[in-house]
């Protein structure tokens, strides 16, 4: 409960209040999206140790799930969102056999899966269903205020989940699986089941983020919502801040996405250089992220 008061409430309140004093709502919205995605990566990578190199696949699946519900079934957005996110969870279920692979093979196979989904969605042969490469337009349900409010709710739920993982025996079990799946089994943990639950929760977060993103921007192309940058940014932000914590990924997004908006939008290659170098520095010198630095200074970081 302490973490809910200290982290969830202030973060959500900040994003609720800022639109009235700061006019670039799209930027605020994107900050929320990246906090969700970085936390989603945190759930599966930070807690269970599987690096989802195709994480954007869930984001895109959520975006398309939402859009296709709206386009083909005229579903109201608030119904289309959970159903659309369901598409991401189904994709996650399809990919569960990948857990047979260890480390880097899992990551590469996951990346291949995300690219495969993009190829299918953007294939001109499927234009009647997915609109192919020509993209989606949802002008009929365009409602940035309500979409922003919904994003706030998704953000709150995401943070709530991570706080739960940080403080529950389920979260501890996931970390035990990350440290040593064999010992975790001997401790009585159903390794296969718990790992899949974490995976699907992570997929759900990205699916909801993708759905609400589609709603907010309302016009997009397959390459927009399946862009590898979502994966890369989410992973880098989470790694930079510190995995398996609540505040690490938030810190990562605020600092690095802030930096991106300062230097990255006009000259993305300079930002790419910065975060590329950051990743290398992190792996070599600070593998547990910014948070571990704070801990070294004696701060207790949740």
């Amino acid at each position: 409960m302490r973490h809910v008061l200290l982290i969830l409430v202030p973060v959500v309140a900040t994003f609720a209040i800022l639109p009235s004093v700061y006019s670039n709502h799209l930027l605020l919205f994107n900050f929320m999206i990246f906090i969700m995605l970085a936390q989603g990566v945190n759930v599966i990578y930070g807690f269970t140790g599987y690096l989802p190199f195709g994480y954007v696949g869930f984001f895109g699946a959520g975006a398309y799930g939402f859009s296709l519900m709206v386009i083909h079934l005229q579903a109201p957005p608030l119904l289309a969102l959970p159903v659309g996110a369901g598409a991401a969870v189904v994709l996650g279920l399809f990919l569960t056999p990948l857990f047979r692979l260890s480390g880097a093979y899992f990551s590469i196979a996951n990346l291949a899966a995300a690219l495969a989904v993009l190829q299918v969605v953007s294939n001109p042969n499927l234009e009647s269903i997915t609109k192919g490469p020509y993209g989606i337009s949802l002008s009929g349900v365009f409602n940035p205020t309500l979409a922003y409010g919904t994003a706030l709710a998704v953000l709150a739920a995401t943070l709530g989940l991570v706080i739960y993982l940080r403080n529950s025996r389920f979260g501890m079990a996931l970390q035990a699986i990350r440290e040593d799946p064999i010992s975790a089994g001997m401790a009585g943990i159903n390794v296969v089941r718990e790992r899949i639950i974490a995976w699907l929760l992570s997929a759900l977060i990205a699916g909801l983020a993708g759905g609400v993103f589609a709603w907010y921007v309302s016009v997009f192309y397959p390459e927009t919502v399946f862009s590898g940058e979502f994966t890369i940014f989410a992973i880098v932000f989470a790694l930079f801040g510190g995995n398996a914590t609540v505040v690490g990924p938030i810190l990562g997004v605020v600092i690095l996405y802030g930096l991106y908006n300062a230097v990255g939008i006009s000259t993305p290659q300079y930002f790419q250089l910065i975060y590329g170098a950051l990743i290398m520095g992190l792996v070599l010198f600070l593998p547990n992220g910014l948070v571990s630095l704070l801990r070294r200074w004696g701060l207790n970081v949740p």
């Binding site: 480390g103 250089l273 290398m280």
Partner: peptide
């Protein structure tokens, strides 16, 4: 876990080179 770390490290290198 050299395999996983190398994966991330060389990913960083790849970004640096591309940039």
């Amino acid at each position: 876990d050299p395999e996983m770390l190398s994966f991330i490290l060389f990913f960083g290198l790849s970004q640096v080179i591309e940039a």
